[in-house]
Design a binder for these strands. Structure first.
Lengths: 242, 242
DNA sequence: TCATTTTGCGTATTTTTTACACAAAATGAT
DNA sequence: ATCATTTTGTGTAAAAAATACGCAAAATGA
């Protein structure tokens, strides 16, 4: 049974909401990072029940005065010191038994970040934060394994029709680095020459004039994502496609 | 402020949820129907505040003992007598001001139905239910216009890579009828001969041997969606594509 | 100097998509 | 019955996109 005091702003409308039972709602984020040729997700080691000593996604309860996006930003910022990430709603999970404490819905988001741009900040001393490679995930709490699998599929389909891969790389990158990323995300190897042609044909890369030095072979030219050009192309009805 | 009595099943876990404020959650359904060459959505005329005298999607508050899908089925069944529809989660809406009564999240679903299979049943005498053509929607309550627009885009992209269009047609249909549906959903005309080739090449249609009679020209052969064959093809790694 | 590695760009082949032609099967008017 | 009309069922050719693969250039290090 639920008893509650309706706030003043809500009580202006005669048809109030207090008669309906309300679930708890969390916002859970699948934060993808790419480094040293590995695709990883950011996980938190829970110390409290339920699922104490399990790894879980970064998440937290939605507050009534914030949108999902604001909640996600608050959670990412407070728990990991991350800000300004690419964020996109993934799916809302609502099975009855996903949280042993009671009915808890999870509005999930996926985020993309270049791990090299951040030193992970542990916001809560009771937590332990880590990048875990997708190829070797630990046992996860709640239904977070399931959420990650869905996010992974979504990312794979997403990168083929929207230039979001750049969010995972440094501002300047070589075509080979970009291709390696796509191969990781898609889980298949791509022909270097065809990839080069395709990505250059989109017109969303601008040459920086710099080259990746210090390697034991021919230095590759470095490019950057030209967001202005991309938006201009989109306006003209162009469709990004890899 | 919220005071509540935690139920016995929840109180088994010491870390309870009562400390967190909880939003109301509705499940709102965009029910698409196709008839006489028009794509429509099922709308309800609201009699109560908020948005009295506005048309809205079929929706209702989520109960704590039901999943989103069960809630959607309950709502569609009780308010419109619909059952067994194709259902898919669309998006979860959570802007702060979408309901004047307070914080209400909407987990939206889209559904597909052949209107000829149902006589609409008005479950609640205070409501008025109607199929409204997408080309001529009335002013809608809440953010339902926005939800419908998103659903429409999703349906358009969906039909190109998943054979869901059949849900909107009779069991037996001609290729021309199927093409008309696709043209409505995609909002563009298609070449009859190329469409025929493509759809037949997928292998998911089986001939029924019957023909559409009574028309003023050559009778067209009628086909049915071969679900068994489709599932078999999917297992073999085949990708439906129009 | 030369073998090795990786880059940058090209061309040929195959596959897919698009454009378009025409006969067959029904109807209704003469 | 004949013929104009409508819509169906199936072609084939051209264009575009995807794929396969060749090779010289630019660095390194032995």
């Amino acid at each position: 049974m639920i008893l509650l005091c309706v706030s003043k702003t809500q009580s202006k409308v005669n048809n109030d909401l207090s008669q309906y039972p309300r679930p708890s709602v969390t916002v859970d984020c699948v934060v993808f990072g790419y480094d040293t040729q590995q695709l990883s997700v950011l996980l938190l080691h829970r110390k409290e029940e339920p699922f104490a000593n399990h790894w879980t996604l970064l998440g937290g309860f939605l507050r009534l005065d914030e949108t999902f996006e604001v909640a996600a930003e608050r959670i990412l910022s407070s728990k990991a010191g991350l800000a300004g990430l690419y964020l996109e709603q993934l799916y809302t999970f609502g099975s009855l038994d996903r949280d042993p404490r009671g009915r808890v819905l999870a509005v999930s988001y996926f985020a993309l970040v270049n791990p090299r741009q951040y030193n992970l900040v542990v916001g809560n001393m009771a937590h332990d934060l880590r990048w875990c490679p997708l190829s070797d995930l630990p046992t996860l709490g709640f239904d977070h394994q399931h959420i990650i699998e869905l996010a992974r599929k979504r990312l794979a389909s997403k990168v083929t029709y929207q230039p979001v891969g750049f969010e995972l790389l440094n501002e300047k990158f070589t075509i080979t680095e970009l291709q390696d990323l796509y191969e990781r995300i898609l889980g298949q190897s791509l022909d270097r020459r065809n990839f080069y042609k395709k990505i250059m044909a989109t017109g969303v890369l601008k040459a920086t004039g710099e080259r990746r030095e210090g390697l034991k072979s021919r230095p590759a030219e470095m490019f950057a994502f030209d967001k202005t050009r991309y938006e201009q192309l989109i306006e003209e009805g162009f469709q990004f496609k890899i």
